[in-house]
Amino acid sequence: TTYKLILNGKTLKGETTTEAVDAETAERVFKEYAKKNGVDGEWTYDDATKTFTVTE
């Protein structure tokens, strides 16, 4: 399944996708990605669109 991440950081904005077996796995991948890019904020997930959003 393809999951999407929307980054709404103070200095970094953008989108990325990952293939994962479930939302929990995708969330771990995306949180590591955000951490590596210095983005830390509020996380939300929309199951209907398989989209995570992190907003600083």
Rank of each mutant, 00 (worst) to 15 (best):
T1I: 11
T1S: 10
T1F: 12
T2N: 07
T2Y: 10
T2Q: 10
T2C: 13
Y3F: 11
Y3M: 01
K4I: 11
K4R: 12
K4V: 11
K4M: 07
K4N: 06
L5D: 00
I6L: 08
I6A: 03
I6Y: 07
I6N: 04
L7A: 04
L7H: 03
L7N: 02
L7W: 12
L7D: 02
N8K: 12
N8D: 15
N8T: 09
N8H: 12
N8V: 11
N8L: 13
N8M: 13
N8E: 09
G9N: 04
G9Y: 06
K10G: 05
K10P: 08
K10D: 07
K10F: 14
K10Y: 09
K10Q: 15
T11K: 06
T11S: 13
T11N: 15
T11M: 15
T11G: 11
L12P: 04
L12G: 07
L12Q: 12
K13N: 10
K13I: 12
K13M: 09
K13S: 13
K13C: 11
K13F: 10
G14M: 14
G14N: 07
G14A: 14
G14H: 09
G14L: 11
E15F: 13
E15V: 12
E15A: 09
E15Y: 10
T16G: 04
T16V: 14
T16F: 15
T16E: 06
T16R: 12
T16A: 15
T16I: 15
T17N: 07
T17S: 09
T17V: 12
T17P: 02
T17F: 13
T17Q: 11
T17D: 05
T17W: 14
T17E: 07
T18I: 14
T18L: 13
T18H: 07
T18R: 05
T18V: 13
T18C: 09
T18Q: 06
T18D: 03
E19W: 15
E19L: 09
E19N: 14
E19C: 09
E19F: 13
E19H: 10
A20W: 02
A20S: 07
A20M: 03
A20P: 01
A20R: 03
A20Y: 02
V21R: 07
V21I: 12
V21Q: 12
V21A: 13
V21Y: 13
D22P: 01
D22A: 04
D22C: 05
D22H: 04
A23P: 15
A23M: 10
A23I: 12
A23T: 12
A23H: 14
E24K: 13
E24N: 08
E24P: 09
T25Q: 14
T25P: 02
T25M: 13
T25R: 06
T25V: 09
T25H: 15
A26C: 02
A26Y: 00
A26S: 02
A26T: 01
A26P: 01
A26W: 00
E27S: 09
E27W: 14
E27K: 10
E27Y: 12
E27A: 13
E27L: 10
E27G: 08
E27N: 06
R28P: 03
R28H: 09
R28L: 12
R28Y: 07
R28C: 06
R28Q: 09
R28K: 13
V29P: 01
V29Y: 15
V29D: 05
V29I: 12
V29L: 12
F30N: 00
F30D: 00
F30Y: 01
F30M: 03
K31E: 04
K31T: 05
K31R: 14
K31V: 07
K31M: 09
K31D: 03
E32V: 06
E32H: 08
E32S: 09
Y33P: 00
Y33D: 02
Y33T: 03
Y33N: 02
Y33K: 02
A34V: 09
A34L: 07
K35Y: 12
K35A: 15
K35W: 15
K35I: 10
K36D: 09
K36M: 15
N37W: 15
N37T: 10
N37C: 07
N37S: 09
G38E: 06
G38Y: 04
G38V: 04
G38H: 10
V39L: 10
V39S: 03
V39G: 02
V39M: 08
V39I: 12
D40V: 14
D40Y: 14
D40R: 11
D40W: 15
G41M: 02
G41H: 02
G41K: 01
G41I: 01
G41Q: 02
G41V: 02
E42V: 14
E42T: 14
E42C: 09
E42P: 05
E42K: 12
E42F: 12
W43L: 03
W43C: 02
W43D: 00
W43G: 00
W43P: 01
W43Q: 01
T44I: 08
T44P: 00
T44E: 15
T44A: 11
T44C: 06
T44G: 06
T44K: 07
Y45D: 00
Y45Q: 01
D46W: 04
D46A: 04
D46K: 04
D46M: 04
D47I: 11
D47W: 08
A48Q: 15
A48N: 12
A48F: 11
A48I: 10
A48V: 13
A48C: 08
A48L: 14
T49V: 05
T49E: 06
T49Q: 07
T49G: 05
K50A: 06
K50S: 05
K50H: 12
T51D: 01
T51M: 04
F52P: 00
F52M: 02
F52H: 02
F52K: 00
F52D: 00
T53A: 05
T53C: 06
T53N: 05
T53I: 09
T53V: 10
T53G: 03
V54F: 05
V54M: 05
V54P: 01
V54K: 01
V54W: 03
V54I: 08
T55Y: 09
T55G: 04
T55L: 06
T55F: 08
T55K: 06
E56A: 08
E56I: 09
E56L: 08
E56Y: 08
